[in-house]
């Protein structure tokens, strides 16, 4: 991979991190309604995966989807405005943090129902195949979604019809507040691929380059008409399931251990070590990310709420 591309990846990871931190701040200030699910610590997966796709490829995402959207190219201003429920938001304030759509960028929705996006993504794969296109669809899901019936039905159909779908599990070890190991009887969720006769690949989700390689390979396979791949990216969410989660299911030590494995620090350090990045340049990138979030925040806060008389549109 060429250095400019690596820089772009690092920059995108920093922006995702800055976005999540900014959402946390605004939530704590009471500016954001409802609930939010942050992907802090999981930037290696969102950025590695989406940047291995082409602009006209599709993704479907989850309730924890900010990182996926940003990495797929969604503009920060309308995205933050949507999280704040503003008229200038991606979906005019109808969706909010859990339901983000940006069709021109191939973001076919962060789907709020766990597992609900897997059949939809499979259907997008059917549509691509039907139209004879060379696109792929990447279906993000959490580890918890793999225990839904929808997972089985969709992967069985996707593999049987050799659809151009990449099923990507972000395994952050906990579903809501229940540790994964309490609800499954296997070590690697990628093993489930065997049930569908498709490749199952375990990836270090905190290694952005490893994720990128694995997705590139799966996408190339899918474009070649060979069907889906099941990718399991092992990672960790630093925040709770949602902001305000007391996190009774884990210890401080466990969180600290995963913080030490920060995917951004790790990637930045590798770039510094091979002398393609300096600490000063990293600092500048971090500052730039913050500045872009300042602009987005100003835009979102300055935007009006949607007009009540539009409530019946698009039903």
């Amino acid at each position: 991979m060429k250095t400019p591309m690596k820089f772009e990846m690092l920059q995108t990871m920093l922006i995702v991190r800055a976005f999540e931190n900014r959402v946390k701040k605004l939530y704590m200030e009471g500016v954001i309604r409802g609930t939010v699910h942050l992907s802090t610590g999981m930037e290696g997966v969102s950025v590695g995966a989406c940047m291995a796709l082409r602009p006209d490829d599709y993704i479907t995402s989850t309730h924890r989807g900010h990182g996926h959207c940003i990495a797929k190219g969604v503009a920060l201003k309308p995205m933050l405005a949507e999280v704040l429920g503003r008229a200038t938001g991606l979906c005019g304030g109808r969706g909010g943090t859990m339901h983000l759509f940006d069709v021109p960028r191939g973001v076919m929705g962060t789907i709020g129902v766990v597992g609900g996006g897997i059949p939809v993504a499979t259907g997008i794969g059917v549509g691509i195949q039907q139209l004879g296109q060379s696109r792929v669809v990447l279906c993000f899901m959490g580890d918890g979604a793999t225990n839904q019936g929808a997972f089985h039905e969709a992967l069985n159909l996707g593999s049987t019809w050799k659809l151009p779908v990449l099923y990507l599990i972000e395994n952050n070890l906990v579903g809501d507040t229940t540790p994964l190991k309490e609800v499954v009887n296997i070590e690697d969720l990628a093993d489930r691929a065997g049930a569908y006769g498709i490749p199952g690949v375990v990836v270090d989700g905190n290694d952005v380059l490893a994720v990128h390689r694995a997705v590139e390979e799966a996408a190339s396979r899918a474009r070649g008409g060979e069907g889906p791949t099941l990718l399991e990216c092992k990672t960790y969410r630093w925040e709770g399931h949602h902001l305000g989660d007391p996190c009774v299911y884990r210890t401080r030590e466990e969180v600290d251990e995963w913080r030490r494995r920060c995917p951004i620090k790790r990637f930045a350090q590798a770039l510094i070590d091979d002398q393609s990045l300096t600490s000063e340049a990293l600092g500048a990138l971090e500052k730039e990310a913050e500045a872009r979030l300042d602009e987005a925040e100003e835009y979102a806060l300055g935007s009006p709420e949607p007009s009540p008389d539009t409530v019946l549109e698009y039903v």
């Binding site: 059949p119 939809v120 259907g123 997008i124 059917v126 039907q130």
Partner: peptide, 8 residues
Amino acid sequence: GAACGASL
């Protein structure tokens, strides 16, 4: 789901 996605 397949019908839904394909329709999109």
